[in-house]
């Protein structure tokens, strides 16, 4: 009975969105692939196969929390987001800041006394934790840095890869 009610609410809210802004429905198409790390300097940009992940995971909320309007599974999130309607923006960068520790972000966070999600992760942290976390748990996805994004020349210099195989200092002491 309650799920029936939810359906009505959902239908009404979708109707409301379509009436108020028809563009919201138009931007709904789910991308098959997404270019991640587009401005990467140390690691090159790469293509994330979205459709493949949809096929294997099936549960949107696993990555998108409450934003897609599907059933929220996390018992902690359910307390507020049980009846959340889909949001206009569902991409990771829509909520997770690319500069979580910049003076501006920190100042805005301090000024907003009503803010609940004080510990919201930055974009890079959210993606790495989500990807590596799931890949480790399920055990069949890439977990190494270069398994997803190969290093650029600049990246190789940054990590001093040319010195690989050189003996660490403590080894020489022995």
């Amino acid at each position: 009975m309650s799920s029936y009610k939810h359906l009505i609410v959902a239908a009404l809210s979708i109707g409301a969105i379509s009436v108020s802004s028809p563009a919201a429905l138009q931007c709904a198409p789910v991308p098959d692939s997404i270019t991640l790390n587009p401005n990467g300097k140390l690691f090159s940009p790469f293509t994330f196969n979205h459709s493949k992940h949809i096929q294997s995971i099936k549960e949107c909320a696993d990555c998108h929390h409450h934003t897609t309007g599907t059933l929220v599974l996390d018992p902690n999130c359910v307390r507020c987001h049980q009846n959340s309607s889909p949001t206009a923006v569902v991409s990771c960068k829509g909520c997770h800041s690319a500069t979580p520790f910049s003076p501006e972000t920190l100042a805005a966070k301090r000024a907003d006394k009503q803010r609940y999600h004080l510990d919201k992760m930055g974009l890079k942290g959210a993606m790495h934790q989500n990807c590596i976390g799931c890949h480790t748990k399920v055990g069949n996805g890439p977990t190494g840095c270069q398994d997803c994004h190969p290093r650029t020349k600049e990246g190789a210099a940054f990590y001093s890869t040319n010195r690989k195989g050189a003996k660490p200092a403590h080894a020489e002491e022995e």
Binding site: S160, G165, P168
Partner: peptide
């Protein structure tokens, strides 16, 4: 420069 590269797990 480090003694060994930064991706050396040894």
């Amino acid at each position: 420069e480090p003694d060994t590269s930064f991706d050396d797990p040894s």
